[in-house]
């Protein structure tokens, strides 16, 4: 038996003809409310998704910033790896020049009001480290600059000739010492790190 006819008939008849009544307006009102909720849900889901993206990428960008700061440390470590780099002070004139050079640098830095405490705050684009000069004592009465004698770390900012970034030069101030050079660059790193805190 085929009752397909019934299907067609049933589909075309109104509720009254089928013997039931339903409040179309009330059902529509409920449906509309659900559709509105969905719309608002979609809105909130979009907001939530955006927040989620921010939460995902914000730490990444912060990490990137951290990486640039970490770069300072890494670079300083690299200096430590390179150390001890020694420059022989063959004679008093050389050591005198060296001392004078350091003194002038310190004076220059101080006149600019730059200190190591400001290092972490500087927007570093490019970091360049100059090898720290250590005057090796070859003979008696010749000055020796050793890492353990570090009294201060200074930083200077220089405008690069090429590119948009700034070059930071870090120099260490050394004190005269008659002791044998036994460079402890780890100390240099720690000191800088503490100051950055």
């Amino acid at each position: 038996m085929a009752l397909n006819r019934l299907s067609e008939n049933l589909d075309q008849l109104s509720g009254q003809e089928l013997g039931f009544e339903f409040d179309e307006a009330a059902v529509w009102a409920k449906l509309e409310s659900r559709l509105e909720n969905r719309k608002s849900n979609v809105y909130w889901w979009t907001v939530a998704a955006s927040l989620l993206l921010v939460l995902i990428f914000a730490p990444y960008s912060l990490l990137k910033k951290d990486r640039s700061e970490a770069l300072i440390m890494t670079s300083i470590e690299e200096v430590a790896k390179e150390a001890p780099q020694e420059i022989e002070a063959l004679n008093a004139d050389v050591s005198h020049k060296l001392k004078r050079h350091i003194a002038s640098e310190i004076g220059l830095l101080e006149s600019r009001g730059v200190s190591s405490l400001q290092l972490a705050e500087l927007p570093i684009k490019k970091l360049s480290l100059e090898p720290i000069a250590i005057v090796k004592q070859e003979k008696k009465n010749k000055p020796v600059f050793a890492a353990k004698d570090i009294s201060i770390i200074q930083a200077s900012l220089e405008q690069p000739s090429i590119g948009k970034g700034r070059t930071m030069t870090i120099r260490a101030q050394w004190q005269n010492s008659t002791e044998e050079s036994n460079v402890n660059y780890q100390a240099l790193k720690i000191k800088l790190y503490e100051k950055n805190k």
Partner: peptide, 17 residues
Amino acid sequence: QQQLFSQLSAPMMGVCV
């Protein structure tokens, strides 16, 4: 949407009942 609902609700209610 309301118009579509209005057109379809009675026959679809027929299916549901």
